[in-house]
Design a protein around this nucleic acid. Structure first.
Lengths: 207, 207
DNA sequence: AGAGTATGTGCACCCAGTGCAGGAAGGGAA
DNA sequence: TTCCCTTCCTGCACTGGGTGCACATACTCT
C-alpha cells in the first residue's frame, strides 16, 4: 500500500513509494527501541509499509542503513582536499579537512551521535564498516599520492591513509565514551599527535 | 564416521574426532580450489567427515577458520612487549616486536601468505578481521598505557594502537601485492615512518 | 556394570540476501 | 483512449550462515 509520494515527477515510470532517507529514519527508530541486531528487515519493511524485497532496492544490506549518504560525503572530502595548495604541509591539510569534515551543526549532533554509536559499537557494523572505510582511505591515499608523487598504492600513501583513519576512529571512540568531549578538538589532537610521531614524550627515557 | 584419534588420552569423555588444525587444513584446501565464498560449511564438514553442526564446535564461524591459533599469538605479543625495559623508546619497542612477531620460518611462508591473502582480500574476512584486530590493538594499547601512565582507553594509547595496526596492514598489503618484497622490511619501514610523523619530506613546501 | 563427562549429530528453526517472473503505476505518442 | 515503454514494487522459491536443544556416542574411572 505505497503512500502517494504525489505530484508529477517529470519522469516516466511508477513513482517511488518511499526514499532511502525515510527508510533510514524508520529503521533508526526501531534500532533505538530494540537494538540493531534484534531488528529484522521484516520489521523495518513492515514499519515502512513496503515489501521485504523492496527494502533491498533501497539498501544493499541491513548494514548499509546507518551509512546514509556516505558517497556524497566522500565527494565533498575529495574536493576539500584539493582546495589546498602545495604551500600547506601535507598533514596539516589532512588535519584541517578532517576537522571540517566532522563539524556537524548542533541540531544534527544527537542524530549524528546515534549513527556513530551504531557504526562503532555494534559488532556487525564495526565489521562491515571496514568495507566502507576502504573508499575513505582511498580518497586520502590519492591525495597523499599526488602530494608525494607516488602511486596511490605505494606504501607511504596507504600507510598514511590507514594511520589517519586509525587515529580518527580513536578520537571518535573517545567522543562516544565521554559526552563532555568536543569531537573536533579530539580529532585535531589525534591528528596532531600522529603528525608528530606521537610526541617526544613517547620517545623514551629522555626527560 | 569419526576417525580414530586413537590412544588413551587420560581424560574422561569421548575423544575428539578431529582438531581445529585439521579442519583448518581441509578448509584451506577447499578455499584454494573454489574460493572462500563458494565453499560452504557443508563442503568443509563433508570433506572432514564430520557433521555440519560439529563444525561449529570447532569454529564459531566460517570467518574464524583462517585465523588459526590467533589467541596464542596475542599472548606471545604481550610477553614480548613486556620484555623491554623503559630505556628503549616506546615506538622502537613496538617496531622491534612487530617485526619479530612477523618473522615466519621460510617453510611456513607460503602457508602464511595464503592465510593473509584470505584475510586481507576476501571482503567477508576483511570485515570480520576488524573484530579480531580489536584484541590485537588492546594489547598494544595496554603496553602504551603502562608506558605513558595513562588509562588504556585514553586517547593516546588508543590512537597509537590504531595507527600501528594501520601501518602494519598497509605493509602487509604491499607484501601481498609485490612478491619481491620482504615483509619484515616493509613493516620496519612503515613503523619508522609512523614514528617520525611520516617524515619531514611530507611536511610541506621546504625544498 | 554403572556413573559421569566430553564430544558428535540430527532436527527444527531464524534471518540475511538473491534471482526471477510478473504486476502496478506512471509518461508520452498515435 | 489506447497502446507502448519505463520504472518501481512484490511474491516466491531458494541458498547459506548460524543457533538451541535433545539425545546418542565414546571414553575413563570406580
Amino acid at each position: 500500500m505505497p503512500r502517494d509520494t504525489s505530484g508529477p515527477t517529470g519522469r516516466p515510470g511508477r513513482r517511488r513509494a518511499t526514499s532511502r532517507a525515510e527508510l533510514e529514519h524508520v529503521a533508526f527508530e526501531l534500532f533505538a527501541e530494540q537494538g540493531f541486531e534484534r531488528t529484522t528487515i521484516d520489521d523495518i519493511a513492515r514499519a515502512a509499509s513496503i515489501a521485504r524485497r523492496t527494502f533491498f532496492h533501497y539498501f544493499a544490506s541491513k548494514n548499509d542503513v546507518p551509512w546514509g549518504a556516505f558517497d556524497e560525503q566522500l565527494r565533498w572530502l575529495r574536493e576539500e582536499l584539493d582546495r589546498y595548495g602545495p604551500d600547506v604541509p601535507l598533514m596539516e591539510v589532512i588535519r584541517r579537512v578532517l576537522v571540517d569534515f566532522n563539524r556537524v551543526p548542533p541540531e544534527e549532533a544527537p542524530w549524528h551521535r546515534r549513527r556513530m554509536e551504531l557504526l562503532l559499537r555494534v559488532p556487525a557494523l564495526q565489521a562491515h564498516s571496514t568495507l566502507r572505510y576502504q573508499a575513505w582511505r582511498q580518497v586520502i591515499a590519492e591525495f597523499v599520492g599526488r602530494r608525494l608523487g607516488e602511486p596511490v598504492d605505494a606504501l607511504a600513501p596507504q600507510a598514511i591513509a590507514y594511520a589517519v583513519l586509525g587515529v580518527a576512529l580513536a578520537a571518535y571512540e573517545q567522543w562516544l565514551d565521554r559526552d563532555d568531549a568536543e569531537l573536533v578538538a579530539l580529532l585535531d589532537t589525534a591528528v596532531r599527535a600522529l603528525a608528530s610521531g606521537f610526541g617526544a614524550s613517547t620517545e623514551g627515557p629522555a626527560r
